[in-house]
Amino acid sequence: MTDTLKDALRKAAMFCAYQERTQQDVRDRLKDWGVWGDDAEEVIAELIQQNYLNEERFARSFAGGKFRVKSWGRRKIQQHLQQRGITGYNLQQAMKEIAPDDYRQTLAALLDKKRQSLRDDNPLVIKQKLVRYALSKGYESELVFSVLGDE
């Protein structure tokens, strides 16, 4: 391994140690540093071997964090993971981070909080705004209507 590659590996290791990354994040950063092609793949392989880079770990922490902190729904989380190159097994593992009971409770709490901020006399308009809000957060329409129907 050349000095340039060793330097790139060291910088990439620090980049990955700071926060979980995907292979594509690292590839993009290496390209910014002037490392691409087989050299970039060699650095990525070394990062995986040293456990700095683990896409399953990234997917799990991303999904759990976005759900707990931002109250995103499964659809939005899946979409963002797919945009970052996470598919298949890693995507399935990420979705397991969201407990079904917590998911429904979070949606109900989100809708209650949103309802407090709405100022309208027409219940149909309020329901429409709540549905639109929940869908924009990435929740499934069946679940949204189910939660709104329970109230």
Rank of each mutant, 00 (worst) to 15 (best):
I126S: 02
I98S: 13
L135D: 03
K70Y: 09
N51I: 09
L124P: 00
Q49D: 14
A45Q: 13
I86C: 09
K127S: 09
A134T: 08
R57T: 09
R84E: 12
E46T: 12
I48C: 11
R29H: 08
F67K: 05
G73K: 01
Y139P: 05
P123M: 01
D120P: 07
Q82T: 14
D121S: 08
S61G: 02
W33H: 04
F15P: 10
A8Q: 06
V26H: 00
K127R: 15
F58N: 03
R84T: 10
W33A: 07
E151K: 13
G138K: 03
A17E: 05
R57A: 13
I77V: 09
S61M: 06
T22R: 00
V147G: 10
L5D: 02
D32S: 12
A8P: 04
F145M: 14
C16Q: 01
L110V: 11
L130V: 00
L30T: 07
I44N: 07
Q93F: 01
S136M: 11
Q92M: 07
A94G: 10
Q83T: 09
E97A: 13
D38E: 15
Y139A: 08
D112V: 07
Q78P: 00
G88S: 13
K113H: 08
L91F: 07
Y18N: 12
F67G: 08
E46W: 03
F62V: 03
A109H: 04
A134K: 06
Y18Q: 11
E55G: 04
Y52P: 00
D102V: 01
Y52S: 02
D101C: 06
L135Q: 09
V131Y: 00
S146W: 10
S117D: 04
D7M: 14
L143Y: 01
K76M: 12
Y52M: 02
E140I: 14
E20S: 12
K76Q: 13
L47F: 06
E42G: 11
Q49R: 15
K113N: 10
L148C: 05
Q23R: 15
P100H: 08
S61C: 05
M1C: 10
T106G: 13
A17F: 03
S117V: 01
L135M: 07
Q49C: 08
L124S: 13
A12R: 07
V125S: 07
